[in-house]
C-alpha cells in the first residue's frame, strides 16, 4: 500500500471538499442571483473533484483488502466513509479553505488564492506519474481555468470598485495573508509526488501580483506562514465544519442514505 499516495490523494480530496462546503454556505444568500448561481456552481465543481479523489483514495485503501479474503463490505473504505467518518486530526486540507466566508470580498479572495494555486498545481499533476491523479487533474483543469477567471474578475472589480469595496479587500488580504504560504511547504507525503514547489510559487506570485495590480490592491510582502493543515493540525474552524457536515453519518452509524 502506497501510504504517501493515499495521503496525498486525501489531501487533495479534503481541500476541495472543505472549500466546497464553505462556498455552499452562500447558496440562497448571494449578493445577486447570477453570482449566487456562480459561487454555487464552483462549489459543485469542487465537490465533483473531491469525489473523484475520495473514490480513488478508497480504491487504494481497499486494494490489500480486496486481494485478501476479508470481504466484509462494511470494512471497505468509500468516498463517504472518508469524508464523513474521519476526524479533524485526520483531515489534510489546506488551512486557507477552512477559513470563514466573512463577506463576499473574503470569499472571493480565498477562492482566487486557491484557484490560482490549483491551476498551476494541476498543470503539473497532469504529467504526474500516477495515471489516475493525472487523469483527475486533467479533467478538473477546464473548471479551474474558469474559477481563476471568475475570481480574478471579482478581485479586480472589488479592488477597483468603490472606497468601501477596496477597504473590504484590504481587510480580506490582511485576514488571509498568513494562509497562502502553506501551499508551498511540502508535507512529507508530497515529497515523492515530484511537484516543483519553487516553480509553483513563482507562477502563483506572478499571477497574484498581476491581478492585484489591476485591482489597485497592495500585494502583501511580509507574511508569516501558518501551516499544519496538510498534516492534520488545523485552525479551530475545522472542528465545527466537520461537526455539521458529518452529523447524520455520526448520529445514525451504518445507515444508507
Amino acid at each position: 500500500m502506497n501510504q504517501n499516495l493515499i495521503d496525498y490523494t486525501l489531501h487533495l480530496a479534503d481541500t476541495t471538499l472543505i472549500l466546497a462546503q464553505r462556498n455552499s454556505e452562500w447558496c440562497g444568500h448571494g449578493p445577486i442571483l447570477e453570482q449566487d448561481i456562480a459561487i454555487t456552481n464552483i462549489s459543485l465543481d469542487l465537490i465533483g473533484q473531491s469525489r473523484n479523489f475520495y473514490q480513488y483514495a478508497a480504491a487504494l485503501i481497499n486494494l490489500p483488502i480486496t486481494i485478501g479474503t476479508a470481504n466484509n463490505p462494511a470494512d471497505l473504505a468509500t468516498e463517504d466513509s472518508l469524508a464523513y467518518l474521519r476526524t479533524e486530526r485526520e483531515f489534510k486540507n489546506l488551512l486557507l479553505v477552512e477559513q470563514p466566508n466573512v463577506d463576499w470580498g473574503q470569499t472571493i479572495l480565498r477562492q482566487f488564492y486557491f484557484s490560482v494555486y490549483q491551476l498551476y498545481l494541476f498543470q503539473q499533476l497532469q504529467n504526474c506519474k500516477d495515471e489516475q491523479l493525472a487523469a483527475i487533474a486533467t479533467k478538473a483543469l477546464k473548471e479551474i481555468t474558469y474559477h481563476v477567471r471568475w475570481s480574478s474578475e471579482w478581485v479586480i472589480r472589488l479592488g477597483d470598485g468603490t472606497a468601501e469595496s477596496h477597504q473590504r479587500m484590504l481587510a480580506a488580504i490582511e485576514e488571509l495573508k498568513n494562509y497562502t504560504g502553506e501551499f508551498f511547504i511540502a508535507a512529507g507525503y508530497e515529497t515523492p509526488m515530484g511537484i516543483d514547489f519553487a516553480l509553483l510559487k513563482q507562477q502563483w506570485e506572478e499571477k497574484t501580483k498581476a491581478v492585484f495590480e489591476e485591482a489597485t490592491l497592495p500585494y502583501p510582502e511580509k507574511t508569516f506562514n501558518q501551516s499544519g493543515g496538510k498534516t492534520g493540525t488545523h485552525t479551530e474552524h475545522l472542528g465545527y465544519i466537520l461537526a455539521e457536515m458529518q452529523y447524520l453519518q455520526r448520529t445514525y452509524p451504518g445507515a444508507e442514505w
Binding site: 462549489s43 465537490i47 473531491s50 469525489r51 452529523y247
Partner: peptide, 17 residues
C-alpha cells in the same frame, strides 16, 4: 451543509441552484 453523503450533497446543491 448537513447532507448525509457526497452524492446527496451534490444533488441538493444542484437542485437549489
Amino acid at each position: 451543509s448537513r447532507a448525509p453523503s457526497l452524492k446527496r450533497k451534490a444533488i441538493l446543491i444542484a437542485k437549489v441552484q
